[in-house]
Amino acid sequence: MQISSPTHRFSPLHLRRWFVGLLMFAGLSTQALAASPEALRAQFASLRESGAGQLLDQSIYLRSTESADRMQGEVHALIDEPFEQVRQQLSRAAQWCDVLILHINVKYCRAQRTATGDELVSGVGRKFDQPLAEVHWVRFGFRVVSDRSDHLLTELRSPTGPLGTHDYRMSVEAVPHTGGQSLLRMTYSYGYGTAARWAMKTYLATLGRDKRGFSVVGKTPAGQPVTVGGVRGVVERNTLRYYLALQSHLQTHDAPGGNATQLGLQTWFNATERYAEQLHEMDGPDYIAMKLKEIQRQKTVAPPPPG
């Protein structure tokens, strides 16, 4: 494409979409561009126009990148929730534990205030009932980067993660959209070294051997799509699980009659079952019973001290 040719005319919006698309195609971070509502809208418009990473729910787009020492998953979505409600829920650390605990691997979450700011103490484990003595503890620093009437950006960061990972990050950006909807961008990423690489290699050779992600990376001889496996598949599954937890909480947090917890769990499970080929791990009643036990436990058991 020769954009300097006088026979081609591009509006500023088209140029912005082209530039954002180029960065996404190259696998580069677009966080620096995500400093305004216009940038987020341009990213979503670019994905909608290309259809890249579109899932069964046509308003959700999932992408992932892999480098020698870092993995990242990213979801862009249009949701049927007013921006002000999104802003109220996601700008407070305590509400984030209601989000994270929906994820099947999160066994505990407690928000607390420290000398350096808000912190989320999270226990990450296996996809079944586990004692807290066996979970991996992750301490997220919680920060609201931008909180305006037209733009929200929050970030969770931990220097360490489960199974030898490091520089663990999750960020959510949101802006208002027409018709009382909101645009969201969620990123989930971590770095990994030798220990994490060996742990992942063991998992992929055993429990994760046949599991796949969502990105299409080829076709079978019969012409059927082949989706990504390996570490990128793991990242894509976890990214979507966290996003669906976020979406489920926003849909159910104000349920009447004290039913928000039960409804949130059922909503998350139903949402993951839409992608059962990649995300199914247990039956709904077993998931809900396990989670109700974990939620009660995190209310009564104090988090471990730092260190």
Rank of each mutant, 00 (worst) to 15 (best):
M1S: 14
H8I: 15
S11M: 12
P12E: 15
L15E: 15
R17Q: 04
A34I: 13
P37Y: 05
A42V: 02
E49Y: 14
S50L: 10
A52Y: 14
L56E: 12
D57Q: 10
Q58R: 14
G73S: 05
A77M: 02
D80C: 05
E81F: 09
P82D: 06
L90A: 09
W96E: 03
I101E: 00
I101Q: 07
I104D: 05
V106D: 04
K107R: 06
A111T: 07
T116K: 07
D118R: 02
V121E: 00
G123I: 00
G125L: 10
Q130N: 07
G141R: 02
S146A: 13
R157V: 11
R169D: 13
M170Y: 03
E173N: 09
T178H: 14
M186R: 10
T194Q: 12
A195L: 15
A196K: 02
M200N: 07
K201V: 00
A205L: 12
T206V: 14
L207P: 01
L207D: 10
D210W: 13
R212Q: 12
G213W: 08
P221V: 13
Q224P: 06
P225Q: 09
G229P: 13
R232D: 08
R232P: 05
R237F: 06
N238T: 04
L240D: 10
R241T: 01
Y242A: 11
S248L: 06
L250K: 03
L250D: 02
Q251Y: 09
A255Q: 14
P256D: 00
E273T: 11
Q278W: 11
M282L: 15
Y287R: 08
Y287Q: 09
Y287I: 09
K291R: 14
R297Y: 01
